[in-house]
């Protein structure tokens, strides 16, 4: 019973992290049909920037509460800066190209971002624990849990809900859906497709940076975790269905439960289990659990 509680709590916490980590990737893929491999780089940069700013606050002896604002600020800077820059300057030039060209381009952006972080912040891990420890802990069934984890669950639910609302209920969301269904027709009826792309990519980048910044206090920020993030995020959205926000949520829950089970029952399998599930889901249902099968046209 006790073990089960631990597994469930671990899984819920980790699901929040995974959702924040992957929702931006699915948004960008859904709208632009591009798998943004540089997503992991943006995520890592968000983590670095947020942590670094928060550490600055502590260094100059400002109240530690401000570290939360700094995490947010770091994410906003990275998202609003990198999103439009990458989309306008680079991605825009390869929209008509083959899928592998698009993948390679975003992959090269990842390589550049990954090293930029090493050059700026060095090889030493960056760590800030204040936002994490300040909220205190609580006890469940004899196990101590930090409140921060549950704040994170809240943040991801609110964020996911806001995204779904944006797509389903706003005018912009309708434009996005039109663009997803048919770019050419949308363009013909006067929708500014380029603008939709810029906004969608920026939202994706922002989501990545936010995820990175708010997950950072739970982990040490180290160089080169950018790509592992993309692989993990890809697994999550592939399981849920590429391009579906709800799918990312379901994928995150499935993956985190599997991982929590593995950690507590068969620790050697921790790394493998995510990929095993992904492969299993894709073999049975290649379009993912919530994805729509793409029809082949003749």
């Amino acid at each position: 019973m006790n073990l089960l509680t631990i597994i469930v709590f671990d899984a819920i916490n980790y699901a929040a992290t995974l959702f924040l980590l992957s929702v931006g990737l699915t948004v960008v893929f859904g709208v632009m049909r591009i798998l943004n491999v540089s997503h992991g780089g943006i995520y890592a940069l968000g983590a670095y920037m947020g942590t670094w700013l928060a550490l600055l606050v502590l260094e100059v002896d400002l109240p530690p509460v401000l570290t939360y604002a700094m995490l947010l600020l770091g994410a906003l800077i990275v998202g609003f800066l990198l999103g439009p820059i990458i989309e306008r300057l680079l991605l825009r030039r390869i929209y008509g190209s083959d899928m592998h060209i698009q993948l390679l381009l975003t992959f090269s952006i990842l390589l550049i971002l990954d090293d930029s972080m090493k050059l700026i912040w060095g090889m030493e891990p960056l760590f800030i624990s204040e936002p994490y420890s300040m909220l205190g802990r609580f006890k469940v069934g004899g196990i101590i849990y930090p409140w921060y984890d549950f704040v994170l669950v809240g943040v991801s639910v609110v964020f996911g809900g806001a995204l779904v609302w944006m797509v389903r209920a706003t005018r912009f969301g309708k434009l996005v859906i039109a663009v997803i269904h048919d770019r050419e027709v949308s363009r013909a009826i006067g929708i500014n497709v380029n603008l939709v792309f810029t906004v969608a990519f920026t939202v994706g980048a922002l989501a990545a940076a936010l995820g990175g910044a708010f997950v950072a206090p739970k982990i040490a920020v180290v160089p080169q975790f950018a790509l592992e993030v993309v692989v993990l995020a890809f697994a999550v959205i592939a399981i849920g269905g590429m391009g579906s926000i709800e799918g990312a949520a379901i994928g995150a829950v499935i993956v985190s439960f599997a991982r929590a089970l593995a950690i507590h029952l068969a620790p050697e399998l921790e790394l493998m289990v995510v990929y095993l599930i992904m492969i299993l889901v894709l073999v049975i249902r290649p379009e993912g659990l919530f994805g729509e099968a793409e029809l082949r046209r003749i």
């Binding site: 030039r93 390869i94 390589l111 550049i112 990954d114």
Partner: peptide, 14 residues
């Protein structure tokens, strides 16, 4: 080194 690879790749693609 990775950054160099990335930049060269970017230039080749574009």
């Amino acid at each position: 080194w990775q950054m160099m690879m990335g930049i060269i790749m970017l230039l080749i693609i574009l």
